[in-house]
Simulated assay, not measured.
Amino acid sequence: MSMALEDSELLNMFRTPASKEKAYTAIIRKYQERLYWHVRRMLVDHDDSNDVLQNVFIRVWNGLENFREDARLFTWLYRVATNECLTFLEQKKKRAAVPLGDVEEGLSNQVKADKDFDANKIEWKLQLAIQKLPEKQRVVFNLRYYDEMPYEEMSRVLDTSEGALKASYHHAVKKIEDYILNS
């Protein structure tokens, strides 16, 4: 199946019983890598990211039939992935019965555990700074900085006003700058 198929064609194929599985496979192939990195930036750990991504794909299979196309497919997929990440982090907090700050500290420790970790390199400082952000700011920063997602699309993914997203991004950038300059 060609990667050149438009989302609308893939959705039409998905809604046709004879081509449903082929279309689903093509959608996953088309967006799997981008979704993986979106999830990985939020959760840090590769195994956790793979587990969450599997849940995302199950939700996509179960929910795609009802996708109304009032947003782009990619936007909807990001929303599903973001919600799964937030659910995972929430469950992790409850299981551990620890404050959010400890979960964020755990994410920072996972960054530090990477075999290539070098605290003096700016990209590692950036990763550590991102993991120190509150959940919402971390999501907004990742979508804007790494995925270069416009605020308008981000607003649909996160169901938040553009103004609130711009403020979150601004606060995140300020905290990251402070962390990098003072560490």
Score class of each variant (00 low, 15 high):
125 K>P: 05
93 K>N: 00
126 L>F: 13
89 L>P: 04
34 R>G: 12
61 W>Q: 15
91 Q>Y: 09
68 R>L: 11
88 F>L: 05
74 F>K: 02
90 E>H: 05
142 N>Y: 09
69 E>L: 12
154 M>D: 01
59 R>D: 08
58 I>A: 03
150 P>R: 03
118 D>P: 07
107 L>F: 00
127 Q>F: 09
47 D>E: 12
8 S>A: 15
27 I>L: 03
86 L>A: 07
57 F>D: 00
47 D>H: 08
169 Y>N: 06
76 W>P: 03
128 L>D: 03
21 E>H: 08
61 W>H: 11
124 W>M: 06
120 N>D: 15
5 L>R: 04
111 V>F: 06
22 K>I: 15
174 K>M: 14
153 E>L: 02
70 D>P: 12
141 F>A: 06
165 L>S: 11
145 Y>C: 11
115 K>V: 05
153 E>I: 02
86 L>S: 08
169 Y>A: 09
156 R>G: 07
94 K>P: 03
166 K>H: 14
156 R>A: 10
32 Q>K: 14
62 N>T: 11
44 V>E: 04
16 T>K: 13
86 L>I: 11
20 K>F: 04
177 E>C: 10
20 K>P: 06
18 A>N: 14
143 L>Q: 05
102 D>T: 09
165 L>F: 13
163 G>L: 11
113 A>R: 13
56 V>F: 02
169 Y>D: 06
